[in-house]
Design a protein around this nucleic acid. Structure first.
Lengths: 242, 242
DNA sequence: CAGTGGTCTAGACCACCTC
DNA sequence: AGGTGGTCTAGACCACTGT
């Protein structure tokens, strides 16, 4: 799918690590060996290895080699901007999605969103509220605000499926990065109504602002999770860089 | 301090962005111009730009240039493995640190830690419990487990200062990466005792396993925050890679 | 068209590790 | 000494953007 060489090499190697061709704590073949195997230059191999490193598959040790640090028991790492649908498939839990609201507002009616996305007062935005239900219990309430001009054709059918898929595959837009914030907040009356009787009456709250490729803010999302079930996992490095 | 060129260039450019030499939404000089300015090759400039991109300073746009996306109003991003002391300095809040416990255990006495760090039953570990106090109120309780063999000289004085600084500056060890997990949990009786009367009686719980350069697990940390005050912020990209 | 970033190469020199 | 990864270069070709 991706046309460049280092990405293909990354796909191959990460796949082999996941399949166990290279086990945890083992060394990957040396860069020189990978150069031979893939018939590319060393810098190209190194780009693929850097991707593996950034995504928590390997750790490079000077003078020694690239050690696999991928552990199958590790929880799936949420931090790389994955959509609800993708997470759901990873965890292989089946949620039912119920669209609570889908409507168009003026940006000025929702000041937080107007400010976060840098909109003019009369810019139109979609508001989309969805319940994620499993075993006839609501686990997550997602509230999304999208720029209307970028997806005028949004409808309930799309909203029940994956909005990210729609954005990327149908509209050809490319999601680039996001700011996320996790807090613990009391549930509002409306939220309690959707969640039903739960303890505590607090929600793990993930707010995010999502940007497209050209640094264009595009989506404001508030995701409320039952606090007792919420878990966020992350892999991070102390120093970034080559 | 860092000897390689791309790191120096990164330091210079990130500093200039923070100082406002390049404003939000503006373009950075072209790669060609930066090649001239720093008298290096283009690939070296690109490595510095990639660091800026990964740390949320810029977004590169095909055929156009590198747009600054750094906003001063943005909260400090915690996700890159920063120590408590570093966070405290960023936020310029003065906490007092109180050492509740500092003792040596056998790994088998703390099975969770033994498993997370992959230890033998009789391996020795430090247990260190610290309260972070501000305005005579406890805001954070940090519980740390360290490999004893790597820092036999740990003492209460060091524990009151920064353990990371001690590890990196005194011991010359290099912290590489960590796995983190955030959950919201009811406070235990012992925690309630340290926190005092608070509402809600929930703690934002950050558990992490920290690794040194050679993929050696080294520290297990549980950080309990008052849920009502807790905020975790993160910057993430959908696709990594060059 | 010229300017921009994206990819890739072949080779060089270095620092570190192991034997 | 020989293997490993880390840094850096000079140049090439491409795809995309703007005019």
């Amino acid at each position: 799918m991706n046309i460049n060489k280092y990405n293909q090499i990354y796909q191959v190697l990460s796949g082999e690590i996941i399949e166990g061709v290279y086990q945890n704590q083992e060394n990957l073949p040396s860069e020189h060996a990978l150069v031979e195997r893939f018939s590319v230059s060393r810098e190209t191999v190194r780009k693929a290895l850097n991707m593996l490193r950034e995504n928590g598959f390997i750790q490079k040790v000077k003078g020694k080699g690239s050690v696999v640090i991928y552990d199958h028991t590790m929880d799936f790492t949420v931090s790389h901007l994955t959509s609800f649908k993708e997470i759901q498939e990873m965890k292989s839990i089946r949620y039912e999605t119920n669209v609570v609201e889908l409507a168009v507002y003026d940006a000025e009616d929702v000041p937080k969103v107007q400010k976060a996305l840098g909109l003019y007062p009369k810019d139109k935005i979609w508001k989309l509220v969805r319940q994620r239900i499993h075993d006839s219990k609501t686990h997550i309430i997602d509230t999304d605000f999208f720029l209307h001009e970028l997806m005028p054709g949004l409808n309930e059918e799309v909203a029940k499926q994956s909005t990210y898929q729609y954005i990327e595959e149908r509209l050809g837009l490319s999601i680039a990065y996001a700011y996320k914030e996790i807090t613990f907040e009391p549930m509002t009356a409306a939220e309690l109504d959707l969640f039903g009787p739960v303890t505590p009456q607090y929600a793990a709250t993930v707010k995010s602002v999502v940007y497209l490729n050209e640094a264009k803010p595009f989506q404001y999302n508030v995701s409320k999770h039952l606090a007792s079930e919420f878990k966020f996992t992350d892999f991070s490095r102390r120093f970034t860089g080559e």
